[in-house]
């Protein structure tokens, strides 16, 4: 039973990452019906941008700042203007397919212009272990968990407590009405893309020291975040958070107590069960049919 605590902490730390990525995912879905199959690659890329800046001789913190700025520019603004805007009015699917192609493109570019090798990446959290309740826990796990929670708290405060947040929610829930009451809907949508870009850059910063910078990192992450988003409820930020944490923990527990060969299956079975018994997700609200 003492192992359980280890498993929980490790699972929560992994789950916190999934949560950040899943939150961005649901934000894009809510405000602009964008299913971003390249979300995992979006997390993979900022680390490479930062590495490139460091390679040019800049210190780590400069690289972080430039890396985040670049990802706001490329993965936020660029993504919206170049891909989402021209395609959005043609429905969900062509855009989703285009993001699949984008995922291939980003992955191949990282491999071609950087390396197929995994590169080490510095951590903003000090290495080493600490002892909590007699268990040895990696500082990194704790740090990731804390930072992820802070990011998510910040985001929910923004959404629920500020006027910009309320405008964003209005723009997401009913753009027509929002426009009538004077919400700058276009700007709000752009803001969600920028927030997503920031979140993926943050996730990149947190996980790359553990995963190492590698072109293929996005595959696992993207899928996990997608599943977390569905499990939590595709249309709720706090659902995505719960979904992410749950997937992280369930993955670890199923590896320990069910089967290592089938560890990836348990969250999926959970997913199917949730769809059958609570289709709006754990915390989502039922979607109204628009027909």
């Amino acid at each position: 039973m003492s192992n359980l605590l280890d498993l929980l902490i490790a699972g929560l730390a992994t789950g916190a990452i999934y949560a950040i990525v899943a939150v961005g995912f649901t934000l894009l879905w809510q405000t602009s019906q964008t299913i971003n199959f390249a979300q995992g690659e979006f997390v993979m890329l900022p680390a490479f941008l930062m590495l490139a800046v460091m390679h040019a001789g800049a210190p780590f913190w400069v690289a972080i700042v430039i890396g985040i700025a670049l990802s706001l520019l490329l993965l936020g603004l660029g993504f919206k203007l170049l891909l989402v805007d021209p395609m959005l009015r043609h429905g969900v699917l062509p855009l989703a397919i285009a993001t699949m192609a984008l995922a291939i493109g980003i992955k191949e570019a990282a491999k071609q212009f950087w390396s197929a090798e995994a590169s080490p990446f510095p951590s903003i959290i000090p290495g080493g272990d600490i002892t909590i309740f007699g268990r040895i826990v990696a500082l990194q796990s704790i740090g990731v968990l804390v930072l992820a929670i802070l990011a998510v708290l910040g985001l929910t405060t923004l959404l629920n407590r500020t006027s910009i947040g309320h405008q964003m929610q209005a723009a997401a829930q009913n753009p027509t009405v929002a426009r009538i009451v004077g919400v700058p809907v276009e700007r709000m949508i752009l803001l969600t893309f920028l927030i997503n870009a920031f979140l993926v850059a943050l996730a990149s910063l947190l996980i790359t020291p553990i995963y190492l910078a590698k072109f293929s990192n996005g595959e696992v992450l993207g899928q996990a975040a997608f599943i977390a988003a569905i499990v939590g409820g595709f249309n709720q930020v706090r659902g995505a958070i719960a979904g992410g944490l749950l997937i992280g923990v369930v993955d670890n527990l199923s590896a320990a107590y069910v089967s290592t060969q089938y560890r990836a299956a348990v969250p999926l079975v959970l997913l199917i069960a949730i769809i059958l018994f609570r289709p709006q997700g754990m915390m989502g609200r039922p979607e109204e049919r628009t027909v």
């Binding site: 285009a98 191949e108 570019a109």
Partner: peptide
């Protein structure tokens, strides 16, 4: 990479 760009461009 070119293949991905072609698909995106087409779409």
């Amino acid at each position: 990479m070119l293949y991905a760009i072609a698909v995106i461009g087409l779409l």
